[in-house]
Computed example of a mutant assay.
Amino acid sequence: MLAGRLNPSAGTFEMKQVPVPEPGPGEVRIQVRAAGVCLSDVHLIDGSLSPAHLTAQEVTLGHEVAGEIDVVGPDVPEQWQPGTRVTLAAGERCGVCAQCTRFREPCLAVRTRGVDYDGGWAEYALATHHTLVAIPDSLPFEQAAIVPDAVSTPWGAVAGTGRAEPARPAGVWGVGGLGAHAVQLLRLLGAAPIVAVDPLEQARARALEFGADVAFDPADPEFGDRVLAATGGAGLDVAYDMAGVGAVRSQALRCLGRNGRLVLVGLTPEPLSVKNSIGLSVRGLRVLGHYGSKPGDVERLVELTRYGRLDLSRSISGTMPLAEAPAAVRALIDKTGDPIRLILVP
């Protein structure tokens, strides 16, 4: 089968023919119908991110995957049958750390699909049964594929780590694949006002379409005054860095009100620095790291789509054949067409 393979030590990514995998105990084989292209995939390819737990020389990329169960291995619960439509959790517990062996949350060494073990940029992919999430017929594979990261990661940041609240001001820096959904989810939770920040005019327009109350250019000389005006002089209750950029974090910190929280969602190897931490202490500000989502979040979000509370139809910027994965990566790097999510289709 065709698969997009990354060799982290050699720094190479290429499309290769590899054997079709066979499911072992507790596993199923998925016929992949859609796989998302994420900025994290780009960072893995350019070497700015590295797998933490990869034991093989190569790995198939792709942590946003949806498809149909093709073959069921031994010891899989009967509810999972061939033909069942599913999306796959973006990672799983290691099973061996102190938390896992004591059945506690969270796992101390979560393995990420398409990073630490083979993902879904392929015609077929393996998945342990506890990472399967059934999807309704009303949810297209292209939309279902992005729920386990592009949607669930901002959900975890908005509803969990950042504790956004109704009628409290929230800011989102970077209205791309993660940020667009953060805006949408903040709207769903009732945060107000929602301040979106992006240097691209088309991204700011998208933010307003997705539910932001205002959208600002971070280079605007009156940026700080505009944020204060939008929040009635109070500053933001919580700010989300969805871009993973040092300058974003510095600017977002300055926009926080008393006891405000900055949540770091976008991944970057850049150092985190605070020029003057006195204000951080005096105003009781907090900087919080965030990664992924909690167990059950993907199921919850799928249910929101089922009942029409969450519309992901605007999130799919285009589809491309799996064989054109390198071109999809370049399009994301170059922001060709200002994509939210590009989808690979085997």
Rank of each mutant, 00 (worst) to 15 (best):
L178E: 12
V76F: 02
A125V: 08
L49V: 02
G36W: 05
A56K: 13
R306T: 15
G179Q: 07
F103P: 00
F103S: 11
K275Q: 15
G120A: 02
I340C: 13
Q202A: 14
D149P: 06
P23T: 08
L126Q: 00
L185E: 09
A207T: 11
H130C: 00
P339A: 09
G337A: 11
L132I: 06
H130Q: 12
G174M: 08
P8T: 04
E270P: 00
G119V: 00
V110H: 06
G91D: 01
P269Q: 09
S273D: 12
V172G: 07
G174F: 05
L49M: 14
R163S: 12
E123G: 12
P166S: 04
E58G: 03
L208K: 08
E165D: 10
T336I: 07
C94G: 09
A215W: 13
R283W: 15
M242R: 02
P346I: 01
L228Q: 14
A328T: 05
L49I: 11
Q81M: 08
A230R: 02
V329T: 11
R206S: 12
P326L: 02
A328E: 06
W121G: 00
L126T: 00
V345W: 01
F13I: 05
M242F: 03
P169D: 12
L236D: 05
A203P: 07
A327K: 11
S277T: 14
V115G: 02
F216D: 04
V76P: 00
E105G: 03
V287G: 07
K335M: 15
